[in-house]
Every structure is written in structure tokens, then in C-alpha cells.
Write a protein that binds this DNA or RNA. Structure first.
Lengths: 231, 231
DNA sequence: AATCTGAATTATGAATTCATTATTCAGCAA
DNA sequence: TTGCTGAATAATGAATTCATAATTCAGATT
């Protein structure tokens, strides 16, 4: 083997991009919890970078509404409130509906096949009551639809909303009836896609999301009433 | 008069926020033209700041898709292409439709009165064929609707799209028939608002925007065919 | 004991410096 | 002339340094 192959791959993306992605993950995964103050220095030391790229990343995440920046007082992980959900879900609904319409016009046979494959996987995990894996394939299906919509801006904006509520979405567990209902809705989604009925698909996706909204709202309500005060 | 009053007001926002806003304006107003390379140093000297806050601002504008950042090669003002329009307008349509629905539920008498006032001003400038002033009141009407929708996230996202196409929107002048049509559509909008018919208002707003889209698309087509090559 | 004051500490804001990567352009070869 | 090479220059990426604002906390005052 040539020594050349051992050289670690050249960094293509700049540090602040990596940091932005990294921090975004940390927020979604709950490593950085909502409301938490994030001292720059500590973060820099943990991730082994200087403050300059870190601050650039913080600015971007603030622009994405994942953090709030108070002048001279640093960054804070934005806590999700019920008000946030009520802002974000209708928007996501509009995105999903649009994605559905566009997807029906553009979807390829391969993509449709991928969706069906993912759907079957999802069903399997549904029957095993394996929530994390179910969640993964669920996400995958919606991502393929987004891709089929072939509108990068739509996808980017959708993702930036999704990331804001993702943690809540994941943690809020569904009742078994609601779970069954979600699966049924997915069947409808596939039917509409096959028939290329954009209007219908849009409507289903919107409703599907609004049902999810109800679940999350309930969960968050319980959460908020439990934790009276934590900064 | 006390000497205290003469003290210039304390800076509340941080420099990078001011810069972001300033640069955004410069892009929208065409001071920085599409495709133009923006050397950091020159910009810093012009605006009298150091590179640190400037770079933070550039990162944020890149996150807003107003600039593209090529690693080690600096920032470039993103040129608007027809593909961009085709990405952005359907999204804006979805936003407008949602805003309309929400606005119908929440709009106050005062806001409705403001819209009518702005509409009359707009009509006046329409009859004088004063495009810039017409444009201003037109924007104002749509902004009031956005405000009535009472969804900050929606408004932020809408604005970030609007800013991307605003220059094209402004420069693309309408035919006189199209202009008349736009005015008529505004009458419909007001009717729907008064009747609180969310579905209808959403549909009108969407159509209204799509008509605008057609105008802009045509204009940009002419532009692109004229300028063969300019970096 | 409770509250207030202000010095010491700590954190952020911004400028500067250093390192690395592009770009330019003079000189050379075909 | 055209195209290539590489040194010089200029730009960006990132770390460090300096300045300023916020916070903490010991000590004084009521």
C-alpha cells in the first residue's frame, strides 16, 4: 500500500461548517439541552477549536433559530414551547403539502420503489414495536418525497424547521391507536403517489402532520407542567 | 439641555447583526451585483470594520442563500436564475396561501383599515403610473397580511425568500394589462379578508403571486439572453 | 440578617496576527 | 505566439490578543 493512501483525507469543508453541523446534531440529540447557556470557551475546548470558527457557527445556528444570542451575554439553546409548535407545524404542513404536489409530478419509478421498500421495513418495526427503527424509516420515506419534489430550497427550509421540533417529535411517543393510524396514513400516501394525485397527497400529508402535531403538543404540555423551572 | 442628551445612543445590537442587515440591503439594492466577487478586505475598509464581524455576517448571509461561499475562495453574490425563481415562487405561494388562511382568522379591524388605506394609496399611484410608490404600498399590504397571520417564523422565512427575488420582482415591469390585473386581484384580496374566507384568500394570493412569477420569469429570460457572460 | 457597593473575575466583542491556500504574472521552453 | 513553471503576491482560514461588558462575591452598611 502506498503511503499516500494513509494520508488523512484533505478537509474540504471549512471548519465553521463542520462545527455548525456538529452543534446542530448536539442540539437535536439533546447533548445540549434547551435553555442551557453555552459558554463559548467550554465548547471550544471540548471540540478542540478556537473561538473564531465557533462564533461563526453560533451565528449561523442563531439564524436558523436553534439558538438565541443575547448581545454580550452569549448563546442559549432555544427551548421549544407550545407556541413554537403552533408556529412551526402549520408551516411544515404547508411544506409537506407542496412537496407532495411536486413529488407527484416528478417522482421516478425507482423512488417509488424505494418508498415501498422503506414502508415495508417500517411496517416490520411497527409490528416489533421498535420505535427508534420505525422512526428512522418513517423519516426516510418523507425524505424521499422531499427529494422527489426536486426543490432544494423547499428541502432546506423544511429541514431547518424539522430540526427545531425533531427532538420533541421523537420523544413524544404515540398511543398504539395513534401509531396504527399513522401507519394507515402512510398507506394512503403511497396510494396517492402511485396515482400521481398531487392535490390528494398534499392533503393527506398535511393531515398526517397535523395528527403528529396533536401528539407532540400533548406530550409537550405534560413536559412543561412537570418542569416548573430549569435554567 | 443636559449634556447627557447629546451622547450618541448606545449600540444595542452587535456589529455583525448590523453588518448582516447592511449587506443584505446592499445586495437587494443592487450595490453588490449578482455574481460579483466580494473581497472581505475591500468590504471591511468601505464599512470601517474588521474582518471578524464581517466574516460572521457573510456566514449568515450564506445561510440565507444570498451569498455562496467557496472554501478558500471567498464569497460571491448569488445570481438569480430562472431555476431559482421556479424554486422560490411556488414556496412563496405556499407561504402566501398559509398567511392568508391564518390572517383571516386573526385580522383586526385596525389592520383591515390599514390595508384599505394602503390600497387606496396604491390605486392613486397606479393611476399616476408611479411604479416605485405603487410597489411600496403593494409591499405594505402584503406585509400587513403577514403580520395578521401572527406567525413570526412564517414571516421570517417568507422574507428570506422575498429578499432573494425582490430585486428581480422590482425591476420586472408589468405590462399595463398585467398591472390592471394585479390591481383587480388586490380588490379580490380585500373582499376575501372582509368575508374572512381563508381558503379563498389563500387561493387568490397564490394565484396573484403566480401571475407575478410569470412576469418576472419573462423579464429574467430577456435579461439572461442579453448578458451572455459577466463575472 | 438583608441589602448594597465595587473590585476581581469571567465572558463576550472585535481587532490583529499568523498560517495556509489561491491567484497573478514574469520568465522560460516549445 | 502559446503554453508551462514557479516565485511573488494577495486572499482567506483560524488562532491569538486586546477591549469592553457582564457576573460574581467579599466586605461594608443599614
Amino acid at each position: 500500500m502506498s503511503t499516500l493512501n494513509q494520508v488523512s483525507s484533505i478537509r474540504r469543508t471549512s471548519l465553521h461548517v463542520e462545527l455548525t453541523d456538529r452543534l446542530r446534531d448536539m442540539i437535536v440529540e439533546g447533548v445540549l439541552t434547551a435553555g442551557e447557556k453555552v459558554p463559548e470557551k467550554t465548547l471550544c475546548e471540548k471540540l478542540g477549536v478556537s473561538r473564531t470558527p465557533m462564533r461563526e457557527a453560533l451565528k449561523v445556528l442563531a439564524a436558523e433559530s436553534l439558538l438565541t444570542l443575547e448581545p454580550n451575554r452569549g448563546a442559549r439553546v432555544r427551548a421549544i414551547t407550545i407556541e413554537d409548535l403552533e408556529e412551526v407545524f402549520p408551516l411544515m404542513g404547508a411544506f409537506e403539502a407542496l412537496a407532495g404536489e411536486l413529488a407527484c409530478r416528478n417522482i421516478t419509478k425507482a423512488q417509488l420503489a424505494d418508498i415501498k421498500k422503506a414502508h415495508n421495513q417500517m411496517l416490520r418495526h411497527f409490528h416489533n414495536e421498535d420505535m427508534p427503527e420505525y422512526f428512522r424509516y418513517n423519516q426516510q420515506i418523507h425524505e424521499i418525497i422531499m427529494d422527489a419534489a426536486a426543490n432544494p430550497t423547499l428541502k432546506t427550509m423544511y429541514k431547518s424547521l424539522a430540526v427545531r421540533v425533531r427532538r420533541a417529535r421523537y420523544l413524544a411517543n404515540m398511543s398504539s391507536e395513534r401509531w396504527q393510524q399513522a401507519v394507515d396514513e402512510h398507506e394512503e400516501i403511497i396510494d396517492a403517489l402511485e396515482n400521481q394525485d398531487g392535490q390528494l397527497l398534499g392533503a393527506i400529508l398535511k393531515r398526517h402532520l397535523m395528527n403528529k402535531f396533536e401528539t407532540v403538543r400533548q406530550w409537550l404540555g405534560e413536559q412543561e407542567s412537570q418542569t416548573t423551572n430549569n435554567n
